[in-house]
Write a protein that binds this DNA or RNA. Structure first.
Length: 566
RNA sequence: UGUCCUGUGGUGUAAUUGGCAACACGUCUGAUUCUGGAUCAGAAGAGUUCAGGUUCGAGACCUGACAGGACAACCA
């Protein structure tokens, strides 16, 4: 944008609350004005659209302030974590368009350091080994409204604690028989400060450290210290960690050395999407119980599922950008997401001819056996997209719903006696039709065409209300289409206390059928995007094979005719 | 009956030393179109959860309600 004088005008976009806080820190010279963030997934599931928001924020914030972002796997629980998830997470972040360079870290890389710091905290008298069972510890925790009670082991000597903790590490005790706890305040109004666990005994192999350790640090202890080790300045996370912040800071103070970057935790609202569930546990349930074909089922809100469905990285980034960053948790409408894909695909997806529910049209005055090639633009929204040739002949398929024997007033399509344009071809008039005696539906329609109305021809400018897409019968390719719809029929499937979210599974979320597509699609590659003209955006499923094409519907085109309730 | 956080059109957000509530999506008109798409023009829709207070002036500041969310895993 420019002013009359040619001066560039800064498009003033207001900063979100996170950017404001970070900017204040930078201006105040904290951490020498540096900004370094991290994205810390736990490798226990696939990334979903909610993670995409966090990724965009973590990487975007650093980029905006000239800093870097680390990828750190928060792998402190060997019982749940697997390498399969590590690989998929890396693939998804790259696909989304972000890069961590060589800064790929693991909390498990820090186990030794974390252990040494724990020893230091014990020596300072701020941690102790507790011999009680988890049930007893839970009981002593109190409730949000009543204070907890102190463990009888709370005041063991430093020497005894040191000895016990080392023996815990050496595997001398059974799983669950001892834990290391921070000694803070059993009466705190913040439950997380009531002597939280730092370490538990887990005799399980870890996906990276194998059997080297049999004690593993808890999230609160490991996460903040990992931030500190990596020189993270801003530890951005979701709102549910808000109450953890005092503990985050407490642990940090135990080991902090002057002059080093001091990470600051700031929380933002996680993404909630209507008609969608975001819980990893529940998504896993859908996979395990075979309600979907896998983590990458195109109906899943996972990034791998959305990629397969035909969502583009840009559409997801734009979506995240439009919903913004705040501390108010609400539910964003999937409509915004869908608008975002349409918007992106409209600009980049080549238009092709495809007929989902074929109805044969015979053009009675077109020479039998003749075929001609007609030129059609690849994408009218993109001047550089060029054009291609498509075959036309005496018999073509049109969409069943584009023909009505007795149409209502504003029906712009084909009906007996009416004229319509065939996209990039001719204007035709319907003269007659044949009914199928068993179905009671039209089976074939007979039309005459007007040779001079060919696109670019002398009568091409004749006004007709409707334009139909079509596919020439002899050259048509048969393909499979998978028509996807929302996985759930309720706006908040997991928002009902007494009803299981699976009750809201949409039985029509997938309809598989056959269609006819133009011959040029024979060479379409997996994940390639197209617009099936007048129908919707589709992409090629990885299941697709030469001779057995498979298309997924990403999202339908907006349809004001259907919406009018016709 | 605790502590912390949050309340702005249907939805998501904006209003940066207090100054006539803005934008996007959606909705509805109309124009245009060889996609009933896209595009363009326009309209409706909130007086900012409520009640007090400070002020010439409050969405913003103060007080008190109310509503929603988070927190009592050897999960992250």
């Amino acid at each position: 944008m420019n002013t009359a004088s040619g001066e560039p005008v800064e498009e003033k976009k207001s900063l979100n609350f996170l950017e404001q806080l970070v900017e204040e820190d930078v201006k105040a010279g904290k951490n020498n004005g540096k900004v370094h963030t991290r994205f810390p997934p736990e490798p226990n599931g696939y990334l979903h659209i909610g993670h995409a928001k966090a990724i965009c924020i973590d990487f975007g914030m650093a980029k905006d302030f000239g800093g870097k972002t680390n990828l750190r796997f928060d792998d402190t629980n060997p019982a749940k974590e697997e390498t399969e998830y590590v690989d998929s997470i890396k693939e998804d972040i790259k696909w989304l368009g972000f890069d961590w360079d060589d800064r790929e870290f693991y909390a498990s890389d820090y186990f030794e350091q974390l252990y040494n710091w724990a020893v230091k905290i014990i020596k300072a008298g701020n941690a102790y080994v507790d011999d009680q069972s988890s049930d007893t510890i839970a009981e002593q925790k109190g409730t949000p409204t009543t204070p907890g009670t102190e463990s009888p082991f709370r005041n063991r000597s430093v020497e005894e604690n040191l000895d016990l903790f080392e023996r815990m590490k050496n595997g001398e005790f059974e799983e669950g028989s001892k834990v290391l706890r921070a000694k803070i305040d059993m009466a705190s109004s913040n439950m997380h400060l009531r002597d939280p666990l730092m370490y538990r005994i887990l005799k399980k192999a870890h996906h990276r450290t194998g059997n080297k350790w049999c004690i593993y640090p808890m999230y609160d202890y490991a996460h903040g210290q990992s931030d500190y080790i990596e020189g993270i300045t801003h530890s951005l996370c979701t709102l549910e960690f808000e109450v953890h912040r005092p503990l985050y800071n407490w642990f940090l103070e135990q080991v902090y050395e002057e002059g080093k970057p001091k990470p600051r935790q700031i929380e933002f609202a996680r993404l909630n999407l209507s008609y969608t569930i975001m819980s990893k546990r529940k998504l896993l349930e859908l996979v395990k119980d075979k309600h979907v074909s896998g983590w990458d089922d195109p109906r899943m809100p996972t990034l791998s599922g959305m990629r397969r469905r035909g969502y583009t990285p840009a559409s997801i980034r734009n979506f995240v950008d439009t919903i913004g960053v705040t501390k108010t948790d609400g539910v964003s409408d999937v409509l915004l997401l869908e608008h975002s894909v349409r918007d992106d695909l409209n600009k980049i997806a080549p238009r092709v001819m495809a007929v989902l529910n074929p109805l044969k049209m015979i053009i009675t005055n077109y020479p039998e056996g003749k075929t001609e090639e007609l030129e059609t633009p690849n994408n009218p929204e993109d001047e550089n997209a060029g054009s291609r040739m498509i075959p036309f002949s005496r018999e073509i398929y049109i969409e069943q719903e584009d023909f009505m024997i007795d149409p209502p007033g504003k029906f712009f399509r084909l009906a007996p006696g009416k004229e319509v344009r065939l996209k990039s071809a001719f204007i035709v008039r319907c003269d007659d039709y044949k009914m199928n005696s068993t179905t009671g539906e039209p089976e074939e329609i007979y039309c005459s065409y007007f040779p001079e109305t060919r696109s670019g021809g002398s009568e091409a400018n004749r006004k007709v209300k409707g334009t139909l897409h079509w596919v020439s019968v002899p050259q048509a390719l048969k393909a499979e289409v998978r028509l996807y719809d929302r996985l759930f029929s309720d706006p908040e499937p997991d928002g009902h206390k007494d009803v299981d979210f699976k009750e809201f599974l949409n039985p029509d979320s997938l309809k598989v059928s056959e269609c006819y597509v133009e011959p040029g699609l024979a060479t379409a590659k997996a994940l390639e995007h197209f617009q099936f003209q007048r129908i919707g955006y589709f992409n090629v499923d990885p299941d697709s094979r030469p001779g057995k094409l498979v298309f997924n519907r990403t999202v339908a085109l907006k349809d004001s005719w259907a919406k009018a309730g016709a």
